[in-house]
Amino acid sequence: MARAWPVPGLRPRARFRAAAGLVIVTRWREMMSYRGGTLAGEDIEELHNMRVSSRRLRAAMDAFEAAFPRAEYRGYLRQVKEITDTLGDARDLDVAMERLDALLPQMAGDERAGLRGLIARYRAQRAREDPHIAALFERLEAEDFGPRLEAFVAEHTGVVATELNPQPT
């Protein structure tokens, strides 16, 4: 699992409002850094890292809700939740297949056919998840979600994403 990106400029005596902007922008950019790898689908760790980042982002948005106007903020939060859930469906299947694969050598000979059958069923289900993920990110792009979120955060916290420019460790 990839480490969380450090939050630039976050100090112990920060104001809650400014901290909200710093953390949310950093977690948003961190999550989106895994977009290309997730869509390529060559390494399941990319999707895992993106999902973990999306959960960090969601936790940060829950924590800092008080810094934003509630109704509009809830709309952004719902969208982030949808990202986590969509990635979660695929990740759950990746984990289930990995665990079943690891269990195979521990099972008796006559028990393995069942596990193999289940793995094959999960593999077929997993293949159907990729188009959902691609469609979600296409929609986010078409709706300009990222720039709108960053502008919303800047308006209410004063933190400008392009100036903050968070990076991995």
Partner: peptide
């Protein structure tokens, strides 16, 4: 659902609000 946290003030320090949450 998480409970609503009373007495938060976004213009005060992170520690003040963080403790309440």
């Amino acid at each position: 659902k998480p409970r609503h946290v009373r007495g938060l003030d976004p213009d005060r320090r992170l520690r003040f609000n963080g403790r309440r949450i």
